[in-house]
């Protein structure tokens, strides 16, 4: 440890103006990136399981998808142009907590089950076809 540096923390200020500018600048940048990334309404959703695309479902229909993985299951609901995970047996439940997604490039990840949902737009569909 370095006593000099600890003293510098002790008698210094918590925030320096240059740091504040750096942080505010990066936060603004990420907000712009968010607006740019998620600015289109999605057309359909891709369902990836264990690294392979198993299904592409249109968001304009109301359906439910049931996936059996290892010893558990995953219930994906598509309704009114949005998709979300309704039920999951995985330990961390992060996919459920992500909530509803409906815009292009938004994703839901279920890491323990290796399932990945991604909303795509019209232009992406053209490339696939």
């Amino acid at each position: 440890m370095n006593v000099k540096k600890i003293d510098k923390i002790k008698y210094g200020r918590p925030i320096k103006i240059l740091d504040l500018a750096f942080i505010v600048g990066l936060v603004m940048l990420s907000i712009f990136a968010l607006l740019f990334l998620f600015n289109k309404k999605g057309e359909s959703v891709q369902v990836w399981k264990q690294g392979t695309l198993i299904k592409t479902v249109s968001l304009n229909q109301n359906t439910q998808l049931h996936l059996d993985i290892y010893d558990g299951h995953l219930l994906i609901v598509i309704e009114n142009g949005a998709v979300w995970v309704e039920e999951a047996d995985c330990p961390d439940q992060i996919c459920k907590k992500t909530g509803k997604i409906s815009r292009v490039n938004q994703t839901i990840v279920c890491a323990p089950y290796n399932v990945f949902l991604r909303v795509i737009g019209e232009s992406d569909l053209d490339i696939l076809n």
């Binding site: 990334l37 690294g51 994703t107 990840v109």
Partner: peptide
Amino acid sequence: IASVVVANAHVLFMFPLMFLASA
């Protein structure tokens, strides 16, 4: 790590969102 686990680099699209949280 998450994108390697699900073998899909599109997970990185979440970075701006995580960025705000980590800020």
